[in-house]
């Protein structure tokens, strides 16, 4: 397995290089260094000299990919691409165009994102699995039918509606929790109740239907009939036999998103004023801050590669028939 992991990590290298180049090309096709300077310098008294000075101070007055005027290795190293992008492979994210250290910002902001995303994932998983099992338990009854209809209704509603509606109902009308905000440590608990609830509730429709499908697939199998024939109760059959076998696709679906939990949710964090990474990338794009954009794209790519690798490894843990080679 160790060789498999090493091999997968080495495969990631050219992928990340390709992503770096693609991000760079896409960014500079749309934005020029002059455009970036104007975004940073504001709207008043922006002269060509001020733009030239800004570009010089930030290293954007170099050629983008190839420096004809430099000599030897300088043709490659004295370019915007080399200066700004190559350091990423050493996890040197550098400084944003507004002067903030990107690595420090990411370290500071990823924990609030995680504080929101992890409970949402765990609680959501428990609720979805629990309700799906209930629907399987009461299959054929009015509860199952009603549940299915409710799931479709819940899926049809936009998550933005849940956020605004949830803030209105629970924060404004019932006044049970703060409408928005965040605090450090245990103080974050009361601020996370509402966004976690809304995150879970908005995902129940699709989640329950998906897990119900997985459980129903298992419920029809021979080993389940055998378990019933042995005299096991329905609940015991579901929890002890159906659930573990249905966990394989559940687990792999969850493991792949685990690393991405750090990246946060743009809309949730925006409405609940949670200082996470969710809006970091969007802010970077809006302010045309290439340093931030390339750092976040790189980070997202690495986390995704890591997620896929963890998924493959988790297969071997839950299914003894699978071997990595």
């Amino acid at each position: 397995m160790i060789y498999y992991i090493i091999r997968r990590l080495l495969y990631a290298f050219p992928i990340l290089l390709g992503i770096n180049i693609l991000t760079f090309v896409l960014f500079f096709v749309v934005n020029s260094p002059d455009d970036m300077a104007r975004m940073q310098l504001g709207q008043k008294h922006v002269t060509p000299q001020a733009i030239a000075n800004w570009k010089h101070q930030h290293g954007y007055d170099l050629p983008t990919l190839w420096n004809e005027e430099a000599e030897g290795g300088g043709k490659v190293t004295e370019t915007i691409f080399y200066q700004k992008s190559v350091g990423l492979f050493l996890f040197r994210f550098g400084v944003s165009d507004s002067g903030r250290n990107i690595g420090a910002d990411i370290q500071q902001r990823m924990w609030p994102s995680l504080a929101l995303a992890l409970p949402s994932l765990i609680v959501g998983l428990l609720m979805n699995i629990g309700f799906a099992l209930l629907m399987v338990l009461f299959r054929g009854s009015y509860l199952e039918f009603g549940g299915l209809v409710l799931c479709v209704v819940l899926m049809s509603v936009s998550s933005l509606f849940y956020i605004i509606g949830g803030q209105f109902m629970i924060g404004k009308l019932l006044r049970l929790v703060p409408i928005s905000g965040y605090d450090e440590g245990l103080g974050a608990f009361k601020f996370l109740i509402l966004p976690v609830l809304i995150g879970v509730f908005s995902g129940i429709g699709s989640g329950v239907r998906w897990y119900r499908t997985l459980f129903l697939e298992e419920v029809g199998k021979d080993y389940v009939r055998t378990a019933r024939a042995k005299g096991l109760s329905e609940t015991r059959t579901l929890f002890k036999h159906v659930l573990p076998n249905a966990m394989i696709p559940i687990l792999t679906g969850v493991v792949v998103v685990l690393p991405l939990l750090f990246m946060g949710s743009l809309i949730m964090e925006s409405f609940f004023s949670i200082p996470g990474l969710g809006s970091y990338t969007i802010d970077a794009i809006n302010s045309q801050d290439f340093a931030m954009v390339r750092a976040m794209v790189f980070l997202g790519s690495i986390l995704y590669v890591l997620g896929l690798l963890l998924t493959d490894i988790s297969y071997t843990l839950v299914d003894p028939r699978v071997r990595l080679s």
Partner: peptide, 14 residues
């Protein structure tokens, strides 16, 4: 920091 106007307005009224 309040990026959205709705929570900002609600908290002002509260």
């Amino acid at each position: 920091l309040e990026k959205e106007t709705i929570p900002n307005w609600s908290k002002f009224l509260q």
